[in-house]
Amino acid sequence: MQDFHFTRPDDLAAAGQAHQASDDGAYMAGGQTLIPVLKQGLAMPEDVIDLNGIADLSGIEADGHGITIGATTRHASVAASEAVCQAIPALADLAGRIGDPQVRNRGTIGGSLANNDPSADYPAAVLALNATVVTDRREIAAEAFFDGLFTTNLNEGEIITRVRFAAPDRAAYEKFPNPASRYALVGVFVAQTADGVRVAVTGAGQDGVFRAAEMETALADSFSAGALDGIAVPADDLMTDMHAAADYRAHLITVMAKRAVARAAATA
């Protein structure tokens, strides 16, 4: 790994300044993706700016409408949070199945979203729950946040500070994990609210997380696994890689969506 200058600022302004002062600065949250990337030489920043020294970036708050999760909150904290389990149990369940226990003790929601790995779990929840990504500069609606593989709407130097989720009436996440990495080969998050049903798919799309519109329409009509009979996302825009072909992923999307709907229907 190429060496870099390491800093751990204790507030957002100092972090932003450190980034601006660097020719090539990288923020680090949990480091569970960035450290492997640095080892492989896929990124060789001059400065690594650790965000874990900024106290207000971590923590979970509940209000009458939902949950707000600080950007450097670990997956394990979200999974174990009573507030999250009560307001959005599907979100706690998702967090508790990311990676493995050690990854969940380091990885963060802000890091996962900023990285926007096409096989990460959190993007499915953020898109299906229509969450708001709050940064040090503005608020970004989930729909506008994700912008293709490993790409987001974040500007240079912009830092995610927290993510705001409204509680749905019912929701569930089901994934078919890659047995080695535990990344989602396909993951489907289904959420029903007063405004309708949203179905977000991760692990499968060539451009990352996406919504399955035809499934949403069918489920708005009848929120049951049977409503998805005969509905499949076309394989054309799905990924083919060493783990699975596009048509297999297309098949898995319907299977995972049905399981998620059945589970959400059973919990309400």
């Binding site: 390491f6 680090m28 569970q32 492997p36 690594v48």
Partner: peptide, 10 residues
């Protein structure tokens, strides 16, 4: 934690 994926400085 996996100590191969944490910096000593962290």
């Amino acid at each position: 934690v996996k100590s191969c994926t944490v910096l000593a400085a962290q």
